[in-house]
């Protein structure tokens, strides 16, 4: 078994890890928008990069992506990807009095960046808790374009044929509105085995 293959116990552990991160993120979201925010994990697994593009709707699909770089004991690239519909709902929610359908400006980009920051920050904290490591994350960068065009930079550090991505898909609900947010972590080549060992070795289910 290579370091990427996971048993069903490992997958449960990965889902549990997803839930821990989602819990952190829900708390942070509640503080941002007020009221109860629920975040449930709809999918948690390791997959190939090519699959990531399919998960978000295909290489030509227009999506909103937030890019964050993490450094430290584990280094890698993170993306939070939203459909344009989910992003629209989110900015309406986050910017009081926003006229629906208005073209995105600085406010919208900044709001989306903050959402990416919260989600990725929650998962970075979950990883840091598990391995007791200190990790730092960059400020978020937001862009709207074709999915594969946005995600291709994620592969530049982990340039291996066996490149795998940690995927956690979540459903965020708040006040009757629902958005889908996908979280991807592409560990750098040197960090991949460290991360996957942590995920399978230190999980509560082991």
């Amino acid at each position: 078994m290579n370091s990427y293959e996971l048993s069903s116990a490992d997958l449960d552990a990965l889902r549990e890890f997803g839930n821990i991160g989602a819990g952190h993120a829900a708390t942070a979201f509640s503080a941002l928008v007020g009221g109860v925010v629920r975040i449930s994990v709809t999918d948690a697994r390791l997959c190939r990069f090519a699959e990531v593009v399919d998960v978000v709707g295909g290489s030509d699909a227009m999506v909103v992506a937030v890019y964050i770089r993490i450094e430290g004991e584990i280094a890698g690239n993170m993306f939070v990807v939203l459909s344009t519909e989910s992003a629209d709902r989110l900015v309406d929610e986050l910017i009081p009095g926003r006229e629906h359908g208005r073209p995105y400006g600085e406010m919208e980009y900044s709001a989306l960046g903050e959402v990416g920051n919260i989600l990725s920050g929650a998962y970075v904290a979950a990883i840091a808790d598990l391995c007791g490591a200190r990790l730092t994350q960059s400020i978020p960068a937001v862009a709207i374009d074709m999915a594969s065009a946005l995600l291709d930079i994620g592969l530049m550090y982990g340039s291996s044929e066996d490149n795998q991505v940690l995927l956690i898909s979540t459903r965020v609900t708040h006040g009757g509105r629902e958005i889908q947010a996908h979280f991807f972590l592409l560990p750098d080549f040197d960090s991949a085995s460290t991360l996957f060992q942590i995920l399978r070795g230190k999980m509560p289910s082991d």
């Binding site: 890019y67 770089r69 960068a141 930079i153």
Partner: peptide, 16 residues
């Protein structure tokens, strides 16, 4: 060779 994400000065983002 585009630079998709702007406003962040990171070498990684200049790969395009």
């Amino acid at each position: 060779g585009a630079q998709m994400f702007q406003g962040v000065k990171m070498e990684a983002l200049r790969v395009g």
